[in-house]
Simulated scan of single mutants.
Amino acid sequence: MGKKKISNEQIVTHLGDDYKKFHGAVVPPIYENSLFIYETFEEFTEAMESEHSNYLYWRGTNPTVEIAEQKIALLEKGEKCKLFSSGMAAISAAILSFVKTGEHVLSISNIYGPTTKLFKYLEKFGITHTNINSKKIDVIEAHIKPNTRLIYLESPTTMNFQIVNLPEITELAKQKGLHTIIDNSWATPIFQNPIEFGVDVVVHSASKYLGGHSDLVGGALITSESLMERIFYNEYQLLGGVMPPYEAWLLMRGLRTLPIRMKAHQESASKVAAFLETHQTVKKVNYPGLTSAPDFELGKRMLKGYSGLLSFEIVSKEFESIREVINALEQFNIGVSWGGFESLVLSPNNGQNYEQLIENNIDPGLIRISVGLESEEELIKDLDQALLSI
Rank of each mutant, 00 (worst) to 15 (best):
N8Y: 14
H14A: 06
H14N: 12
D17G: 00
K20F: 14
K21G: 09
F22K: 10
V26Q: 12
P28G: 08
P29F: 06
L35E: 13
E42W: 05
F44H: 11
T45D: 10
A47R: 11
H52Y: 12
H52F: 10
W58A: 11
R59P: 00
R59N: 08
I67G: 00
E76D: 12
K77A: 15
S86D: 03
S92R: 13
A93Q: 13
A94K: 06
S97P: 09
V99I: 09
E103I: 05
V105L: 13
I111F: 07
T115A: 04
K120Q: 13
S134Y: 08
K135P: 04
K136V: 05
E141P: 02
A142G: 05
K145N: 03
P146D: 12
N147I: 03
L150R: 00
E154Q: 15
T157Q: 06
M159L: 15
F161A: 02
V164H: 00
N165G: 00
T170F: 02
E171I: 02
A173L: 11
K176W: 05
I182N: 07
W186L: 15
V202M: 04
Y209H: 15
L216M: 15
G218F: 11
L221C: 10
L221H: 02
I222V: 15
S224H: 09
E225T: 09
L227A: 01
E229W: 03
E229L: 03
R230H: 10
G240F: 08
M243N: 04
E247L: 14
W249T: 11
L250V: 11
L251W: 10
R256H: 13
L258C: 01
I260R: 11
I260D: 11
I260Q: 12
R261H: 13
R261K: 14
K271A: 03
K283C: 10
K284Y: 13
P288A: 10
P288W: 06
A293R: 00
F296Q: 06
L298G: 07
Y306C: 02
V315Y: 09
R323W: 09
R323I: 02
E324K: 14
I326S: 00
I326D: 08
A328K: 13
Q331K: 12
F332T: 08
I334K: 02
G335P: 11
V336Y: 08
S337W: 01
S337R: 02
G339M: 01
F341V: 09
E342P: 03
E342I: 15
V345G: 00
L346I: 10
S347D: 02
N349P: 06
G351E: 12
Q352G: 09
N353M: 02
N353G: 08
Y354N: 01
L373G: 02
S375I: 00
D382C: 02
L383N: 07
A386P: 06
A386D: 06
L387C: 02
